[in-house]
Amino acid sequence: MNQSWQPSASIETLRKRAALLHQIRVFFAQRKVLEVETPALSSHTITDPYLEAMHTLHTQVGAFTSSKLYLQTSPEYAMKRLLAAGSGDIFQLCKAFRDDEVGRIHNPEFTILEWYRIGFSLQHLIDEVGSLLMATLKVEAVNQSSYSVLFERHLAFNPLEVDLPSLFEICAKLGLQDYVGSLRANLADDENTHASVLLKDSILQVLFSTHIESLIGIDYPTVVVDFPASQASLATLHENGRTANRFEVYYKGIELANGFDELTDAQSQHLRFAQDNQKRSVLGLSIKPIDMHFMAALFSGLPQCAGVALGVDRLLMLALQKNTIEEVMSFSQRNC
């Protein structure tokens, strides 16, 4: 008999999943962080060059046209609008959607935990993430390392100072020359000033994934800090101008969380969105309109805060020592 209707997680795992969600809610209730819900659908989406949103159409009865609505890739913009409106500390447990993401640790629809703490420094938030991980993963400690130190330790070069020709040489020695060739061939406009930044970030990322990730976060989760400024996303820059106030958490080869000291300056944010779109065009991707509701909220004033997003499915995978994300989901993309 066909068994493809069956859930990919066992009922026992689903009980543990419910317990984890409860544990997370208790964690934030004790810290007086307000649980919020924001819409999964939005008229606008992100401009990231490396993330694609899914979308759907909304049609009113009798209407001649449909409006396009994007499924959120994370609840970040809507939550920041609540922060700008005076919500205070907030957290959300919700579904997020990312196109083209299927694999051992990827599912196009997944559960995200995102929270924002007003007046927190980045280190203060890292410590809070550590507390949550120690409680949920039953680990005694969390390590911390800087992005540059990890590259110097495992690959013997400084990622902030290295130039492209040296990076190409390093890749050739590591047998990645075909990969780099393919990256270069894929640039729609390799004369563009953004092209070299895109190439460098993609190469650093692949080196990080193939030569560093498996060597960190083995016994304890590792928090990586001080990413290059070009990977700042929505984080502020360090006063040195070269690194971003961003952190990521790695455990057993899996990226688990991504946090920022949130950029509150509307002008700088607008410039980053514009740069993102220029990068998208270099990659031959469509330009995404900038979310004006989000921009208006920033112009009205976002309080200084630190925020982080954490993959709940991955957290459960690691807590239960499961090998694939679908083992902790009731139904994955395979039979949803």
């Binding site: 083209d100 299927v102 051992r104 990827h106 393919s182 692949v206």
Partner: peptide
């Protein structure tokens, strides 16, 4: 399949060459 969000997505593979029998790792965009 690896989609880090900060750089282009890639595939890491382990491959066996069928004639020589050698196994190797290869990264694809």
């Amino acid at each position: 399949y690896v989609k880090p969000g900060k750089g282009q997505a890639f595939n890491r593979t382990k491959i066996r060459k069928l004639v020589s029998g050698k196994t190797l790792e290869k990264t694809w965009r």
